[in-house]
Amino acid sequence: MVRIGYTMMTEQAGPRELVSHVVGAERAGFDFSVISDHFFPWLDSQGHAPYAWSVLGAAAQATSRIPLMTYVTCPTFRYHPTVVAQKAATMQILSGGRFRLGLGSGENLNEHVVGAGWPAAPVRLEMLEEAVGIIRRMFDGESVSHHGVHFDVENALLWDLPDQPPPIGIAVSGPRSCEIAGQYGDLVIATEPKRELLRAFDEHGGSGKPRIGQLPVCYDTDRDAAVARAHDQFRWSLGGWKVNAELPGPGGFEQAAQHVRPEDVAAAIPCGDDVDAFVDAVRPYAEAGFTEVALVQVGGEHQQPFLEWAEAKLLPALRDL
């Protein structure tokens, strides 16, 4: 059975609302939750970008059962890997062992703010690999001194370590990231139901480890309203990862998505209240071998109706997968 998760989408809701939403997701029976870690929204119409780690701390105290996870944090530009290790260890303690640390090589949208430039993808993956090594050593309780190609660390030690370190997930989109995920990750993260990504992950040591996907959906009893909202706030998602990782701000995504039509979005994102359409959208992930799928309900002000509908109709239908 595929586990179904809920996404706290920081780009479309404020911090207090996000905490309220994940409380509702726990009540509705979602199996886990994830949160995006962004400095900007993708589009101005989304309208938010609170600090994910503050929201996570509040969510850990406001909930008691639902697992929490970053989806994903970049540990190489805005955050130094030692700081990520400290934040993740603290979250694991606050949540009572419910936290998983999802990591990725980042997007220019969020990381350009520190003025460190935006290197080519192979360099970003080198940085990710080095960062994960530092974080793992700190999770092991080492006093870490490290002088590598990309990072310097002097006597970094975590004074508050959880009984069990948070599992590390690594986002993948191609062969090199799958190699890093298989070697260093406890689980793999992807945003597309591509079987070849999971095969590459398995070939590098990922066999038997969890694999988590993510899918935007747009529930509304009025399907036309759902399509319009999905087009307004999520048309950027059709650009593909090679584009989405490179653009530096919402204005760039506005231009890149200017020719995306509502019908294009409706073909990619299930919209409305047809349970079968939502199940059909999740099915490719299950068939590809994903063990978990996190749903993103589009529209910050439309979470409560979605959660109520999911509890009553969608989650029971998805359990059959």
Rank of each mutant, 00 (worst) to 15 (best):
V2C: 12
V2P: 14
Y6I: 12
M8K: 00
M8R: 04
G14A: 03
R16Q: 12
E17R: 04
S20L: 06
H21P: 13
V22P: 13
V23H: 03
R27P: 12
R27C: 00
R27I: 09
A28I: 06
F30N: 14
F30W: 11
F32W: 11
S33E: 11
I35F: 12
I35P: 12
F40V: 01
D44Q: 04
G47I: 01
H48N: 08
A52C: 03
S54P: 05
L56A: 07
A59G: 12
Q61Y: 06
S64C: 13
S64D: 13
P67E: 10
L68G: 04
M69A: 13
M69W: 02
V72P: 05
T73S: 11
F77K: 11
R78A: 03
T82Q: 15
A85Q: 15
Q86A: 15
A88D: 15
A88P: 15
I93Q: 09
I93A: 05
G96K: 04
G97E: 10
L101N: 06
L101C: 01
G102R: 01
G102I: 01
G106A: 05
G106C: 02
N108C: 09
E111L: 01
E111K: 01
E111N: 01
G115Q: 07
G115R: 02
A116S: 03
P119Y: 04
A120N: 12
A120M: 07
A121W: 05
E126R: 04
M127L: 06
L128K: 07
A131W: 09
A131D: 14
R136Y: 14
M138W: 11
E142L: 08
E142Q: 14
S143A: 13
S143F: 08
V144M: 11
S145V: 07
S145C: 04
H147V: 08
H147W: 03
V149H: 05
E154A: 05
N155Y: 12
A156D: 14
Q164P: 13
P167A: 11
I170Y: 09
G174D: 14
C178Q: 05
C178S: 14
G185Y: 07
G185D: 14
G185M: 08
I189D: 12
T191H: 03
T191N: 11
E196P: 00
L197Y: 08
L198M: 07
F201V: 02
D202I: 00
E203M: 02
S207Y: 05
P210Y: 10
Q214G: 09
L215G: 07
Y219L: 07
Y219W: 13
Y219T: 13
V227P: 13
R229L: 15
A230L: 10
D232L: 15
G240C: 05
V243S: 09
N244F: 04
G249H: 01
G252K: 02
F253S: 04
Q255M: 06
P262W: 06
E263H: 04
D264H: 06
V265N: 06
A268F: 01
I269H: 00
I269P: 02
I269E: 08
C271I: 10
D274L: 02
V275F: 06
V279I: 13
V282G: 14
A286S: 10
F290A: 09
F290G: 08
F290K: 04
T291I: 07
G299F: 14
G299I: 06
Q303Y: 07
P305K: 03
F306L: 10
L307Y: 02
E308S: 03
A310P: 11
A312T: 08
L315C: 11
R319Y: 11
L321Q: 15
L321Y: 14
